[in-house]
């Protein structure tokens, strides 16, 4: 059997509503693709991804394996990231809905648990063991 790797740029996912972003990821993964994304989700979005995964678990889809490496940002990038977080919080107060945040700097891998057997993570790298 063949294993498909999809590399996704941050511009593909940025600006999409959170729900749509999670749908995009899970539909690809449920089809058997391993997704490598240019960016890192926020902790609450990762939790939403786990929650939505659990709703979709069935006999043929036991779930996902996920791993992310967040880039350590400093200086102007850090300022912009914090500004974006604060803007999102203010937006949430006025609109009473969670804003569609941009992905943070880094890399994320999401794949089907039935093919990814193990992810070994170190602080600055990770390796993935697959079995097809």
């Amino acid at each position: 059997m063949k294993l498909k790797l999809d590399f996704v740029s941050s511009s593909t996912l940025d600006g999409k509503p959170k729900k749509e972003r999670i749908n995009y990821i899970l539909s690809k993964v449920k089809d058997g693709s391993i997704l490598v994304m240019d960016g890192v989700m926020s902790p609450d979005e990762e939790l939403d991804l786990i929650r939505e995964t659990m709703r979709r678990v069935d006999d043929g889809f036991p779930g996902i394996e996920v791993c992310s490496l967040k880039k350590k940002v400093k200086g102007f990038q850090l300022f912009m990231e914090r500004l974006s977080d604060q803007t999102a919080k203010i937006q949430q107060i006025f609109t009473r809905r969670t804003p569609d945040k941009k992905l943070k700097f880094g890399i994320t891998l999401v794949g089907p648990a039935k093919y990814i057997k193990k992810i070994k993570k170190n602080p600055n790298s990770f390796s993935v063991l697959t079995e097809v």
């Binding site: 902790p43 609450d44 992310s68």
Partner: peptide, 17 residues
């Protein structure tokens, strides 16, 4: 076990937030 799992990282990230 290895503590650096995504579940642990996601859990702690959410608690911090």
């Amino acid at each position: 076990q290895d503590p650096l799992t995504q579940v642990n990282i996601t859990l702690l990230g959410n608690l911090e937030a």
